[in-house]
Design a binder for these strands. Structure first.
Lengths: 193, 193, 193, 193
DNA sequence: TTTTAACCGAGACGGTACGTCTTGTCTTATA
DNA sequence: TATAAGACAAGACGTACCGTCTCGGTTAAAA
């Protein structure tokens, strides 16, 4: 007598195939023009296999994001010890991504997906920002006028991510100077040496 | 000899009817479940009349926004002379809107619409933020640590709007304390008395 | 290893429902005002189910005709042994059908359908005429001046059906006397007694 | 006091232009794909000008037919004195027309138009057949077994036209042999010399 | 000569139907 | 019992025409 139900178990191959197909089509066509049927065809999978395991296309995208299939992890800020410079480099990198057509579609599509699925919204906020940035900010206390003990680190991180999103939505991606200005607006001017 | 082409002229009645129907359905159902057919039916108008004048549903929503049919103008910050308090009140108002189910759908839907139409993105940024806020910030120079002469006012305003959008996407609308923290993160601490 | 493809099989219920709905609407409204959408609605079926199996509305009508859903089988000539009288009775019956408004619409609509689909044309010719009539003509050799051994039986049958169609198109259905004249024109005068 | 109304009179230029455009499009695309909008555009005319003078597209086609813009008058049987041969030549000519793709579309389209407009049906019957043929038949009394004094000349002509129409509908246009057989079926065998 | 009514072209309007696409569910045969 | 395949009811898409109505401009008979 067994505690296991009978029959085959979820196919990992199908799952991977679906996630990879989704990532491919998402990047290629954007979220709006991504369809369940298209994913099924691209993945060589029956539609039911998708519906069995995910409640909506946003959930598949969410899982892609979780698996790192959509946003590369190069979006982590560098750590040179100079917080202001690191953040400017990091925002600059984000703006550079958004300046390429494919990156622009990707980010915009992620925002679209986020409007349907809070988890994507949170993941987007966290991936682009939050925890990593918060730690860096905390470590930089004293190095800029707004980075004092007990400063609203979370909110500062949020404001930076938010700025990037607003730029994505208004299609004005910004450049290094904009990154500079935004970071200065967020953490204040660097402390004099 | 005339500068006018002959033939009937665009029906203002149909235009208004379409915009009003769109606003009604948008608030009621959100952007995703808003359909051209639904708008046509609600407005008592042929579909072709819509396609003749707008290239996509996002364009209709954009025009609604422009005509003030979607975001009430109560989202303008008060002016008590105390910039910090005014901004906190204003962000608090936005968070209050986003805490109601209908307001949450509205804002999220506007973001979804913005992912398809840059003009909506810009209008959203400007309506929620930019010019009005920028002016207020400029007037408040000296009243908070980040509001010095030549500070990046635009970027500060952008960061505030961006924060609200991030909150909308992650479904963590925030309360008065969050508003307080965000404003403090953006414009720094109020000047000492 | 199997010769069968997987997946569900064509729904016979849907097929019947579509054909019956088509027959009903065809008789009621005529071919021109018969629409795919109307058929789908009447049959309680999705439009795609129709388009999956038929290339045009004429093909559905054709299949209705094949299944005997449109022309009752009372249009078979009687067999009393007297070919001339039998043919007159049969043409009279056709004219009687065409004299009723609903029959008139039916026949005219079948002709309209035939202009779009050769198969309907052939079926119409055969159902109204050909094989059955040809046999009867062949059996009547010697009983009329044109019914000799090796006479063009096919062409005679065709001429009779053609006459009926011309009458339908010119809305002059004819009566028993016309039937008499036509039959006489086709097979010649009855043999003298 | 006058019986004449004021204002300009019907534009003959517009009328001709419409009829010619109709004839051109009818031949080119067939009756089904002929549209009022297409005619208006082709004729360089407002739609209202069409609707002012004709109740339906079938009426325009009918008028084209009347003006000889659709069926050339070469479809008149020759007159060599030998009725049987003349009729065979004439039917052969009709079959030859129907064997060309454009002629096939034309005839089939005329039948389609006739299903909507009795006048077209009658005109078709008369143009292809009736009066001219009837006269010829009457003149041929004695030259074939069915052409006796008081024979159903009208019905014979009708049967010939009907045969051609049946052939058009079943897309089996026939050749000279078929013409021979049909004529023989209709008027009987030529009298022995 | 002025008026005036009907003509003309253009084309916007409220509609209907088209044929296609996608959704989410259901069914079948296979593994 | 999970899978690939795919039929199904539903319904939105964007397009094509329908027949009506509304413009500004033109024309010819009536006043």
């Amino acid at each position: 007598m067994s505690l296991h139900r009978s029959g085959p178990v979820r196919s990992e191959a199908a799952r991977r195939s679906i996630l990879e197909a989704t990532a491919r089509l998402f990047v290629e066509r954007g979220y709006e023009r991504l369809t369940i049927e298209g994913i099924a065809a691209e993945a060589g999978v029956g539609k039911q296999t998708i519906y069995r395991w995910w409640r909506a296309k946003s959930a598949i995208v969410s899982e892609c994001l979780l698996e790192g299939l959509l946003l590369s992890h190069r979006l982590v800020p560098p750590d040179t010890g100079d917080v202001h410079r690191d953040l400017v480099d990091w925002m600059g990198e984000i703006f550079r991504l958004m300046a390429e057509p494919s990156g622009e579609v990707l980010v915009r599509s992620l925002i679209a997906a986020a409007t349907e699925d809070a988890q994507i919204g949170r993941k987007l906020r966290d991936t682009l920002g939050s925890s990593v940035i918060t730690d860096r900010l905390r470590a930089g206390v004293g190095s800029a006028s707004n980075l004092y003990e007990g400063a609203p680190f979370e909110e500062i991180a949020e404001a930076l991510v938010g700025s990037a999103i607003v730029r994505a939505l208004s299609r004005e991606p910004g450049d290094r100077a904009a990154a500079e200005a935004l970071v200065t607006a967020s953490i204040g001017r660097p402390a004099a040496f």
